[in-house]
Amino acid sequence: MESVIIGIDLGGTNLRIGAVTSDNEMIAPFVLKSSIVADAEKPVEKICEIIADYSEKNRIRKIEAISIGVPSSVENDKETVICTTNIRNRAGEVVFSHMNVAKDIKERFHVPVFINNDVNNILLYDIMANGLEEQKVVVGIYIGTGVGASVVIDGKPLEGKDGAELDLGHIPYFGGTISCSCGKVGCCECYASGWRLQEIRKEFYPETQIQDMFTLHKEEKPLKEFIQACANVYAIMATIFNPNTMVVGGGVMEMADFPREEFEAAVNQNTGTDVMSYGFDYLYSKGDVGKGVIGAAIFARKRLKDKRSDT
């Protein structure tokens, strides 16, 4: 077997792992619960065990790099996780906070190890899968349980001073009064997220399954207000970045009968006039469960290429 990159998508619920070839084919994907890591006495050591077991069972001998996507900001060293608020142990404590997760994994496997925000990885996958590499500005917003965002400019993901950029779910929603899990009040995740959709279901439609919300209720006021809230998030980013393409993704946007035309009309209406005089394309991310794993490998190859260019 040729050398591969081990890609891992470590989410709040599931951990996905796979070996990714040079042509971005995923071999032997495997899924397990993230709680196996979160509840371990030594979480990074548990990740190492998972990688070792996976490699042994699938007879993977040539590992070029290991690349992990996490649901949080990551410092610009692409090794240190800032705070994974959605990955907590049984005591409710955050598992990874300002922790260099890559260090011990590198020492165990003697290969380069990269840690990246999971949404950054997913956008890299969507860019590759849809041939958007030559576009100047691509903005991806993924509304699942929370809100994640990534921006790629001239082929490079946008990085802030420390790596804490684009925490879009926690920008203030003007006039918002709902308490957020982050400790603030009125974050946009409180109004435009899968969490909020569940709250709407419980309050107005307790007999409806979450997957049927748009099918049964998209013409009713609670859902129309929810769609407007989601559109506002995209309109803010479109106005700021003047993108070629706006990638729309995440579990909410991929639900059955999500009203795309109504959503796009609301985004266009709320986006700044100057940007809308040029417009932008919409691309809907497909619900491929392997895209976080493959995206992690794409990110690793970019970093390896950059390192070779610097030497």
Rank of each mutant, 00 (worst) to 15 (best):
M1V: 10
M1S: 09
G7V: 06
D9H: 09
T13P: 11
T13K: 00
L15A: 08
A19S: 06
T21Q: 14
T21S: 12
S22Q: 14
F30T: 07
L32S: 13
K33M: 13
S34M: 13
S34L: 07
V37H: 01
E41S: 11
K42T: 15
P43M: 07
P43H: 02
K46Q: 15
C48T: 07
I50K: 02
I51A: 04
A52T: 08
Y54V: 08
N58G: 13
R59I: 14
K62I: 10
I63L: 06
A65E: 09
S67E: 01
I68C: 02
I68E: 03
V70R: 00
E75T: 14
N76W: 03
N76V: 03
N76F: 03
D77E: 05
D77Q: 00
E79G: 06
N86K: 00
N86C: 03
I87D: 00
I87Q: 02
R88H: 01
R90G: 07
E93G: 13
V94E: 09
V95P: 01
V95W: 05
S97A: 15
N100W: 01
D104H: 09
D104A: 14
K106D: 06
R108D: 07
F109I: 02
F109P: 01
H110F: 09
V113R: 00
V113E: 00
N120K: 13
N120L: 03
N121G: 05
L123M: 06
L124H: 08
D126T: 12
E134A: 08
E134T: 12
V137C: 01
V137N: 12
V147E: 04
V147S: 01
A149C: 05
I153L: 08
L166R: 11
D167R: 09
L168I: 13
G169R: 03
H170D: 01
T177F: 04
I178M: 11
S179P: 15
G183F: 15
K184R: 13
G186K: 12
G186P: 05
E189M: 04
A192D: 02
L197E: 00
L197R: 06
Q198H: 15
E199S: 14
I200T: 11
R201N: 08
R201M: 14
Y205P: 12
T208I: 10
Q211L: 03
L216I: 04
H217R: 12
E220I: 10
L223W: 10
L223H: 05
E225F: 09
F226P: 05
Q228A: 14
Q228V: 08
N232G: 15
V233Y: 05
V233C: 10
Y234R: 09
A235Q: 10
F241Q: 03
P243W: 03
N244M: 07
N244L: 10
V247A: 04
G250E: 00
V252D: 01
V252L: 02
E254S: 12
D257T: 06
P259S: 06
F263W: 06
F263E: 10
A266T: 01
G272K: 08
Y278D: 08
G279F: 10
D281W: 12
D281S: 12
D281P: 05
Y284Q: 04
Y284A: 03
K286P: 08
K286Q: 15
G290K: 06
K291P: 02
K291S: 00
I294K: 01
R301Q: 07
R303C: 11
L304F: 04
D306P: 07
R308P: 06
R308A: 05
S309N: 11
S309T: 11
D310A: 13
D310P: 00
T311K: 15
